[in-house]
């Protein structure tokens, strides 16, 4: 097997008595995207900061393209790009100057820096604002500039720490498109997120982090298969029939009322026969469904069943 671009073995970080990260193992093959999924305070950022040489691990080992993050930090830094959740751009510099600064600090050949800055501004759709101070940028533009700054020195491995946290839906979609283009170009990417939808959309593999440790991993569909049952969702024309339908379908599998109070959800193991069973029982009881859907559990369902709390429960802590 080829050496992974990002490798963590038993990575740990303690701050005094507090264990922020406990024995995390990760392996990200080159050209793939790993999503690190977990609520706020789960330790995702601490893992990223260790792998990007900003924090020294208390124990364990991390390597980037074979270089040790603790002892070969210069070699690591030449090969990584980091875009953080705080959009670390210099407000007083223009977009272009921000990129030129990073170009100089990463010791790019002098002659190519200005051209590279122009190319990145163009690619991330901020060329028109390129000569305005970054403090005039919208949240989405700042994130794109931050991401562009992380790419100036053509890093082979990219870390994105909650790239869309705090963005409005339009800004999030724009950024997703940009990240998908990077991935299509073959970037190796480690992405942290609290958004299950984001991990599902962008990542090849997902590692679920809670309280500093890995609690599950796999592809999105593996996680769903492993942890959730298939859900049959029945929407009824008359909401007053819901309770009757719920107790009726309780014989097929565990039931829940949908969030919208218009549907009943039945968790089943084998969707084929179960759908027939559901339809037969509804028909016999004279209840008319307006729609009937079979769906995989969402990553939210997965997180809830893994941790007993929802991914966004302790977002404020």
């Amino acid at each position: 097997m080829e050496q992974p671009a990002i490798l963590a073995e038993g990575l740990e970080k303690r701050f005094g008595d507090v264990a922020a990260v406990v024995g995390v193992d990760l392996a990200v093959p080159e050209g793939t995207v790993l999503g690190l999924l977990g609520p706020n305070g789960a330790g995702k950022t601490t893992i990223v900061r260790m792998l990007t040489t900003i924090l020294k691990p208390s124990a364990g080992k991390g390597t980037i393209l074979g270089f040790d993050v603790a002892t070969q930090s210069d070699e690591v830094r030449e090969r990584i790009g980091l875009a953080g959740q705080y959009a670390a751009v210099d407000d007083n510099l223009t977009g272009r100057e921000n990129l030129i600064m990073v170009g100089r600090l990463t010791h790019q050949p002098r002659g190519g820096i200005v051209a590279r800055a122009g190319e990145l501004l163009e690619r991330f759709g901020i060329a028109d604002a390129g000569d305005r101070p970054a403090k005039t940028y919208s949240g989405g533009m700042r994130r794109r500039l931050d991401l562009a700054a992380a790419l100036v020195h053509r890093p082979r491995v990219l870390f994105l720490d909650e790239p869309t946290t705090g963005l409005d839906p339009a800004g999030r979609l724009e950024l997703w498109t940009v990240i998908e283009e990077l991935v299509a170009d073959g970037a190796t990417l480690l992405l942290t997120t609290q958004y299950l939808e984001e991990a599902d959309r962008l990542a090849d593999r997902i590692v679920v982090i809670d309280h500093g440790g890995v609690i599950a991993q796999g592809t999105a569909s593996e996680l769903k298969r492993e942890l959730g049952n298939t859900i049959v969702e029945v929407v009824l024309a008359d909401p007053s029939d819901l309770d009757a339908a719920k107790s009726l379908l309780g014989e097929v599998g565990p039931t829940d009322l949908g969030d919208d109070r218009r549907s009943v959800q039945v968790k089943v193991l084998d969707s084929g026969p179960a759908v027939l069973d559901v339809v037969r029982r509804l028909d016999e009881a004279g209840l008319a469904p307006t729609s009937l859907k079979v769906r995989e559990p969402s990553l939210d369902d997965v997180f809830l069943s893994l941790t007993g709390h929802s991914a966004t429960d302790d977002e404020e802590t």
Binding site: T52, T53, I54, D74, R77, E78, I80, G81, L82, G84, Y86, A87, A88, V89, D90, D91, V102, L105, T106, H107, A149, H153
Partner: peptide, 17 residues
């Protein structure tokens, strides 16, 4: 506090700079 030093630390630049 704006995270710029965090960015600088992830770059292969001189630590004294």
């Amino acid at each position: 506090h704006k995270g710029l030093i965090e960015r600088f630390r992830s770059l292969p630049m001189s630590r004294s700079a």
